[in-house]
Design a protein around this nucleic acid. Structure first.
Length: 231
DNA sequence: GCGACAG
DNA sequence: ATCTTGTCGC
């Protein structure tokens, strides 16, 4: 249990309290050049079971740059909060933190499914996770929450800035030729440039970077894994 | 009031 | 997120 057991703050809040909390926590986000060396990178994602009543978080730690999975942990708990655009972290982070606590390996960087600072109050789930754990994080969104942008080129590696209120809040990145782009934004202790660099460094033949892909697979897997491994 | 809206 | 098989395209 190398990860902080400290929940960071009270998670039983109302939507109004959650928004007020985001405004406070957003001031603690640090945009920096990112970690100098990354020996292992983690990917986190959450899936839902039983009609959304249970939340299952998965965290997978991979070696870098080999991207070989080293450790996988899961946490399953009752879903604590409804899905409200802009308040996703209050629904998914509690169980994600419990999955992270089970790790024996401390990751140097964490890729999170969802936005970083590309959020109305600049505190998407990746930024929130970073502030609470102190770990460098990057937000990897599969679609846009807020912000305007020009469609990036169709080749892998093409990028376009994601803007809101005349400020840059992220980067729209084509991680694979001719596929929908990803919305990359700094979470905590990373910046626009490093967030895109690390994301591409973790991306192979697929649209999603390996850490996210692997966590996704585990979090969304049918009970056990009979529909996959077996047969 | 109307439209948008991560997972 | 989740409900769900085969199928079109590179």
């Amino acid at each position: 249990m190398l990860m902080p057991v400290d929940p960071g703050h009270d998670w039983s809040v109302t939507p109004k309290e959650a928004i007020a909390l985001q405004r406070i926590l957003a001031a603690r986000v640090h945009l920096q050049s990112g970690p100098k060396q990354v020996r292992c990178v983690a990917g986190v994602d959450t899936g839902f079971v039983d009609h959304g009543r249970m939340a299952r978080a998965a965290v997978v730690v991979l070696s870098f740059p080999e991207l070989v999975p080293l450790e996988t942990r899961i946490a399953l708990e009752p879903t604590p909060f409804p899905y409200i655009p802009g308040l996703l972290s209050f629904r998914e982070l509690p169980v994600v933190l419990h999955a992270l606590e089970k790790l024996s390996i401390l990751p140097d960087l964490v890729l999170c499914d969802g936005q970083g600072i590309a959020h109305p109050r600049r505190l998407g789930i990746a930024a929130h996770l970073g502030v609470v754990t102190g770990l460098p994080t990057i937000g990897v969104g599969k679609s846009r929450l807020i912000g305007d942008y020009r469609e990036p080129g169709m080749e892998k590696g093409c990028v376009a800035p994601l803007m809101d209120a005349k400020q840059r809040i992220g980067t729209v990145v084509r991680t694979r030729r001719a596929v929908r782009p990803l919305f990359i934004s700094p979470g905590h202790r990373t910046d626009h440039v490093s967030a895109v660099e690390w994301t591409l460094a973790c991306t192979g033949r697929y649209r999603l970077p390996e850490p996210i892909r692997m966590a996704d697979r585990v979090a969304s897997a049918r009970r056990g894994s009979e529909r996959n491994s077996v047969r």
